[in-house]
Amino acid sequence: MNEPKTLRAKAALLSAFFLAFILVIWYTATLPTKTAAPTLTAEQSEYAKLMGKDPQAGGGAPSKSAFPTPAQMGSTIVGHLSDPFYDNGPNDKGIGLQISYSLARVGLGFSLAALFAIPLGFLIGMSPLAYRALDPFIQLLKPISPLAWMPIALYTIKDSSISGIFVIFICSVWPMLTNTAFGVAGVRREWLNVSRTLQVTPMRKAIEVILPAAAPTILTGMRISMGIAWLVIVAAEMLVGGTGIGYFVWNEWNNLSLTNVIFAILAIGLVGMALDLVFAKAQKAVTYAE
């Protein structure tokens, strides 16, 4: 028990060191630099004197970096987190509100994908006939980029928000479907033979025998799907606009606010990490040590 705790402490210390190293590099890279005094011709010097200016004025003045400094980022973070749920109109919403819109779209699209993919994955995993019949369609549709479906969704659905949910549904289906089918097909034959000997009904066998055995693999597929869904929603919201963290990034870029763009990137990463942690905990809970 002491070794894992020691390992965690060392890992935390190393992570803190990496963070400090990155901040030092960032701070150093954004320090003001002095520019050399411009070399003026005799005519330019005379013209400057006639205009009442010092020909050497401005030479060697410090030049600020266009990239935000750590202090500016800190100020931006505090400003956003002090009131994350304000709503001042279509193009001025708090970061918490924007993330909430994105999470709602991801949650709905992901849930619909789970309701579709997991039962179908059970069917494919339990039936060799269904596997052979559906595998060509899965292999054909799986490599298609989710964003390639966006024009078709916008044309048929004619609603940008629902189109975004549809794109999340499409990108979430395949990892869950393939992992569920793999997990179901990989259940130990001894367990299935015992259930057959006891004349267990197919529904009870699926729920009490196959589902617990395949649960870790199913949750792996769900974990992968959630990661892809959170990644895709940012790009989808940049295309459809309106609300969401992706639209926030695009809008702040149009406003030339690089500090807000970087803050949004950090927020996207933290939310994605939290979502992955939730599924990692669930996956660990259903994994049985042999």
Score class of each variant (00 low, 15 high):
residue 127 S to K: 03
residue 132 R to A: 09
residue 13 L to N: 08
residue 180 T to R: 01
residue 202 P to N: 09
residue 37 A to S: 11
residue 73 M to P: 02
residue 231 L to W: 11
residue 13 L to Q: 14
residue 243 T to K: 05
residue 6 T to V: 10
residue 41 T to R: 07
residue 169 F to H: 04
residue 118 I to P: 00
residue 41 T to C: 08
residue 256 L to Y: 13
residue 197 T to D: 06
residue 195 S to G: 07
residue 236 A to E: 02
residue 90 P to F: 10
residue 16 A to V: 14
residue 100 S to G: 14
residue 183 G to L: 02
residue 80 H to K: 15
residue 139 Q to T: 05
residue 100 S to T: 10
residue 185 A to P: 03
residue 140 L to K: 03
residue 215 A to Y: 00
residue 131 Y to R: 12
residue 240 V to I: 15
residue 53 K to C: 10
residue 141 L to D: 07
residue 24 V to P: 04
residue 104 A to P: 00
residue 100 S to W: 12
residue 281 K to D: 05
residue 113 A to S: 10
residue 142 K to V: 05
residue 226 M to A: 13
residue 109 G to M: 05
residue 178 T to N: 11
residue 167 V to Q: 00
residue 236 A to D: 03
residue 26 W to R: 03
residue 250 W to Y: 14
residue 113 A to Q: 01
residue 63 S to L: 15
residue 164 G to M: 06
residue 43 E to P: 01
residue 53 K to A: 14
residue 233 I to Y: 00
residue 23 L to V: 15
residue 231 L to Q: 10
residue 56 Q to F: 11
residue 257 S to F: 05
residue 215 A to Q: 05
residue 153 A to N: 07
residue 252 E to A: 14
residue 30 T to E: 12
residue 18 F to M: 15
residue 96 G to A: 06
residue 68 P to C: 04
residue 180 T to N: 03
residue 48 A to G: 04
residue 268 I to D: 03
residue 69 T to S: 15
residue 279 F to N: 05
residue 162 I to V: 15
residue 44 Q to F: 11
residue 150 M to S: 07
residue 199 Q to H: 11
residue 273 M to E: 08
residue 162 I to R: 09
residue 33 T to M: 08
residue 248 F to L: 13
residue 65 S to F: 05
residue 94 G to D: 09
residue 23 L to G: 01
residue 158 K to Y: 10
residue 242 G to Q: 05
residue 22 I to Q: 13
residue 151 P to V: 00
residue 144 I to L: 15
